[in-house]
Nucleic acid binder design. Structure first.
Lengths: 337, 337
DNA sequence: TCCCTCCGTGCAATCGTTACCACACAAATG
DNA sequence: CATTTGTGTGGTAACGATTGCACGGAGGGA
């Protein structure tokens, strides 16, 4: 049916082994033969059968990406998309394809990963979210399969990860608000079990403590990565007797919800409330007022993750198992009067 | 190394053929054997090697998704993401995985597709964008490889596609504005070569014509799927001597740019300008004012596309090669005074 | 009782590559 | 000139599954 290595061999007047050697650039092949074979391959439109190749070489040149489950409602659209672009770019550069998968429940997800690993469908796995007590990490760690986590996992300190210094990032964001003269600063968080929520909350507390400012626990609202969370948080916070004058918000999307709610109630940003978000998604530049946000180098996270995974697969030593991508506070209208 | 069908066979006291038959639910296998083998498979944590399987069966159970090139700057983040979720859901339900790929240039992209097809890396391909004179469609059509286009391709009317009735959708959006009493209505478009731009423009013109309203060509601005386009279009349109009082905007993202620009210049929506967008992304509910938008059933598009492709792969006849997903106008504050 | 049919299972070829081993021949060494 | 070293290539056995063919035994009909 389709053109195989044998067809090329016959047409070029050599053996299949020789063709295989030409493809893998074996040193002991004569220049003339190599050229002739290459020409024939192009003539016939030959491409090696990936499965035959994979069967013998035990490599698929596919990286698996496990998406967070939509069911958990913590699907960070915009963040995820940028990360994926970064992963894809680096994977392609290194000759890898990307297989994306998800599960509809935790056990389903684990089953999927087992299938991918045991069925040799991918050479390595990228986990896009990291929570504490993650059974996926546990499994991958146990069977010794190459994987990289985006974020960090306190339960498996040796697992390779790519992450921001989220504590420092939140510290910087909070510090920025303190520098503007704010004393009552609130924090709108994501789901507790995610390390990113925990870390940013820590950074916020640190900055407040260091500045000698006290935190009312009413100022800390937990939710999900959705505008609804921001909207709801806003109405709770604005009804407090002693309400904050500024907010650090876990994600720009959530901050949009806050902004919208404030607008609706006739409050003005930054006069009545200052806002700082995270992720610096492209829309943040185009709200009214534009949103101050911590740029966490989302694309670069993806890029670096793929690179780390590929190194792990080819058994190159990693000089550091925990890579930190630098962040940068982008100050815009939502936080300066 | 890893557990194979032979290990299972040995442990269960049967031949590898029998194990294979148990897996594929061959009818002529005794119930007892089937149960015993199944138990052993679970005990050993056996998963069939996907490449050995694929080599002989000539099926990979992988669908390829070709992303639009970022270089073209027509990467519709939010649209794409929802579609992908739909594709993924349906693919998983049918036992398929998803491989995503893109190219950095047109020829690179074609090369990637050739590699996927000829190298038997995927069983079928989904094209996420459809433009006129698309070399990918030409190639896939020529070699007779299963594929489905999201959108439509005027050059290949027989190719299976999943699409909206974009002419009608834009007609409805425009009609809605006309019903509100507007007479000078503008249109902010995406790249000309995309069929979606062409179709929506057609629908807009149709509605205007039918209502006996004349269109000034100054009211039609072409750009890309970016906020910048909206921002720029807005400033051009507001400087016209006879400026429109309402706009149909090709995508919500672009409409955000318009909205932001208007806010910045102190114009108010909907008093000074009414807006209708497309795609009804989740943020549209949370702008100030909330954005009226045509919901095109993005998730369902993905879902249906995967379903159609899988049918094509298994050579089931399609009762219709061109599937239309219904749209729905969601009226919000940006278009009613 | 004999033959035919059907059921459950094993044997062996096959899918398209890779990689080890062998071999012919040329060049270099003593 | 004999021997070693090296170069370019072919033959063949894997890799881990599927599948057509064959075969022994049980059951049913004549």
């Amino acid at each position: 049916m389709s053109v195989t290595i044998k067809d090329v061999a016959r047409r070029a007047g050599v053996s299949p082994s020789t063709v295989s050697r030409v493809i893998s650039k074996h040193p002991r092949i004569s220049k003339e033969t190599a050229e002739r074979v290459t020409r024939v391959m192009e003539e016939l439109g030959y491409h090696p059968n990936s499965m035959a190749k994979g069967l013998v070489s035990k490599a698929t040149y596919i990286l698996g990406v496990i998406l967070p489950r939509p069911a958990e409602e913590l699907f960070q659209n915009y963040f995820f998309h940028e990360v994926l672009r970064g992963i894809l770019a680096q994977a392609n550069r290194s000759g890898y394809d990307l297989l994306i998968a998800s599960g509809s429940s935790e056990s389903d997800e684990l089953e999927t990963v087992k299938r991918l690993v045991r069925g040799r469908r991918v050479d390595g796995i990228i986990l896009l979210s990291s929570k504490t007590k993650d059974p996926l990490i546990h499994f991958l760690n146990e069977v010794g399969f190459p994987f990289v986590i985006i974020g960090r996992s306190p339960d498996f300190p040796d697992a390779p990860t790519v992450d921001n210094d989220n504590v420092q990032a939140a510290y910087d964001a909070t510090r920025h608000l303190i520098n503007q003269g704010h004393e009552r600063i609130g924090f709108v968080s994501g789901p507790q079990e995610l390390t990113v929520s925990q870390d940013r909350l820590t950074g916020y507390r640190q900055a407040m403590l260091e500045a000698g400012l006290s935190i009312s626990e009413d100022w800390i609202v937990e939710g999900e990565f959705l505008q609804e969370t921001g909207y709801r948080a806003m109405s709770m916070l604005m009804n407090l007797p002693e309400r904050p004058t500024a907010l650090v918000v876990i994600d720009d999307i959530v901050a949009f919800g806050v902004l919208h709610g404030l607008n609706e109630l006739g409050y003005s940003v930054p006069q009545d409330m200052c806002l700082v978000g995270f992720n610096n998604i492209s829309l943040s530049e185009h709200t009214s007022p534009p949103l101050t946000s911590v740029d966490i180098g989302t694309y670069q996270i993806g890029y670096m993750t793929a690179q780390t995974l590929i190194k792990t697969i080819s058994k190159e030593p990693l000089h550091q198992t925990r890579k930190i991508i630098p962040h940068r506070l982008i100050v815009r209208g939502s936080s300066v009067k």
